[in-house]
Design a protein around this nucleic acid. Structure first.
Lengths: 137, 137
DNA sequence: TTCTCTGCAAATCGTTTGCATATAC
DNA sequence: GTATATGCAAACGATTTGCAGAGAA
């Protein structure tokens, strides 16, 4: 049984081939793909898959916490199967999203809770700039 | 001359009543409003203002750096006239966005640049949780 | 068998665009 | 006077929804 399938079972989500495939794709990439990109990849194995299914699936996965949704720009959401908190970088030229390795998300949640009165559940840090390929210096 | 008008002149942006009003609104609020909310407020003084003008204006302001765009959820962008880096909290129940006071944005830009090879221009940290009114504990 | 998921197409909604008119400088 | 901004309506594109048929348990 595939890794993804086991996670779905453990989470109590009904297993379907499309769901396994989507989770498998997200688990095996570091590219933080958006829905369109996931859709195109699923399509290679399941040519009749619909965009709506991909939308419903990533929404379900994000809601149950097995993936996280990253809000990068207003036009597209990106998804990440690495759910432990970690910062990201986004290239404002080519749109790429990558993990920042070796930089623990600074844990200021308690401080932020005290300062705001919120009950805080998660933190997300995004760095914006130009990637190696898009830098001009 | 109003505060907003002076900033527009200094930035080299042509001054119009709508632009002054929009910048004035953003300068005088801590609510990090979205376009729809700004539009409704401008409409009180300029009933014939159009949504398109508000969109064009906040895009211009963000591009020239006199305001910043916050990516909170996939559905709406929010705008902030406080442009120096500072973290935000978002209530995942009511959607409110607030500043986190007294918590300097931890400056890991150099580290992130080294770890990723990016030339980083800005950093944004968002905490997600439930605000005072939406907490249930 | 029963309940849920999938795929399709249409609907939605935030945002953008083209263009004629009005306005800032 | 000239270049640019406004307001309108139509276009766009990502996402959501409703529903009939298919598939998982």
């Amino acid at each position: 049984m595939r890794h993804a399938e086991r996670i779905l079972k453990e989470t109590g989500i009904k297993v379907t081939p499309q769901r396994s495939e989507i989770l498998e794709i997200l688990t095996n990439t570091k590219s933080h793909p958006g829905v369109e990109s996931i859709y195109l990849q699923v399509k290679e194995k399941f040519p009749s898959v619909s965009l709506a299914t991909v939308y419903k699936t990533v929404e379900l996965f994000a809601r149950t916490g097995i993936i996280q949704e990253l809000c990068v720009t207003r036009d597209v959401s990106r998804y990440d199967a690495r759910v432990e908190p970690h910062p990201h970088v986004n290239c404002i030229n080519c749109g790429k999203v990558e993990d920042v390795e070796g930089l623990p998300q600074d844990n200021n949640i308690e401080h932020a809770e005290r300062a705001t009165g919120y009950r805080i559940l998660k933190e997300e840090t995004m760095y914006f700039g130009h990637c190696k390929d898009c830098r001009e210096d």
